[in-house]
């Protein structure tokens, strides 16, 4: 009996939580509002790559970001940083995908909104299906699952920490590439992982646009 009561309570509680936001767009818009408050940031990142058929030493990289989508990486040595996950622009998510709220799940003992993303245009097929998990309490992206058209799966887990007691920004990103098929003739790594640790955030320092014009890696 207690279990039934608990189930009913949890059901209504979760519905109530969902009802804080009517739909997925509202949740992503809420992230966007927080995201827009960060005009620019600089951070140093350490990246460790463990990919099939690719041996890369640990990398120390400085990244620069400026709204809306300017992105620049600097490194004394060679570095390879996953295109997905390093900077996610919520507005871009809504531009490229239709978002549908599926419900609330537990992720690392925390409630998260699970949102399904389906590409808007089949011409620009980015991935067959994607799921984004958003921390319910602090409204940040906690996980992203993506299945690109090549049949690979990319899972990105975000550990976020509070910067300047105001903004949640990634402290660690773990990107995992998985693939059922193996084609040894291809140079593209089919499976493996990349761990990225962020340090020394500097926020809203007024980065110059000229920084992003030199051989920059602007988000596309």
């Amino acid at each position: 009996m207690k279990k039934i009561v608990l189930f009913i309570y949890l059901f209504f509680y979760s519905q109530q939580l969902i009802s804080q936001f009517k739909d997925a767009e509202q949740i992503i818009d809420a992230i966007q509002i927080k995201y827009d408050e960060i005009k620019d940031y600089t951070a140093t990142i350490e990246a460790a790559v463990d990919l099939e058929r690719i041996k890369v030493p640990k990398m120390d990289v400085k990244i620069y970001f400026k709204q809306p989508d300017k992105f620049h990486i600097e490194s004394k040595n060679f570095a390879m940083i996953p295109r997905e996950g390093v900077v996610i622009n919520p507005a871009e998510l809504l531009n490229k995908f239709n978002a549908k709220l599926l419900g609330i799940e537990q992720l690392n003992s925390r409630p998260v909104y699970k949102i399904q993303l389906t590409p808007k245009s089949e011409q620009k097929l980015i991935s067959l299906e994607s799921y984004v998990y958003i921390d319910q309490e602090n409204i940040y992206i906690a996980k992203l699952e993506s299945t690109p058209s090549e049949g690979r799966t990319i899972v990105i887990n975000f550990s976020q920490s509070l910067v300047q007691n105001k903004y949640y920004l990634p402290s660690k990103i773990f990107v995992k590439f998985e693939n059922a098929e193996t084609n040894p003739s291809q140079r593209l790594p089919r499976s493996g992982s990349v761990t990225i640790s962020y340090k020394n955030y500097l926020l809203n320092t007024g980065l110059s646009d000229s920084l992003f014009t030199k051989k920059s890696n602007n988000l596309k």
Partner: peptide, 16 residues
């Protein structure tokens, strides 16, 4: 040409 497939998923920086 050799790294094109990797560049699909990674930003590559540094003088290779």
């Amino acid at each position: 040409a050799q790294t094109r497939s990797i560049q699909k998923e990674f930003f590559m920086v540094g003088n290779l």
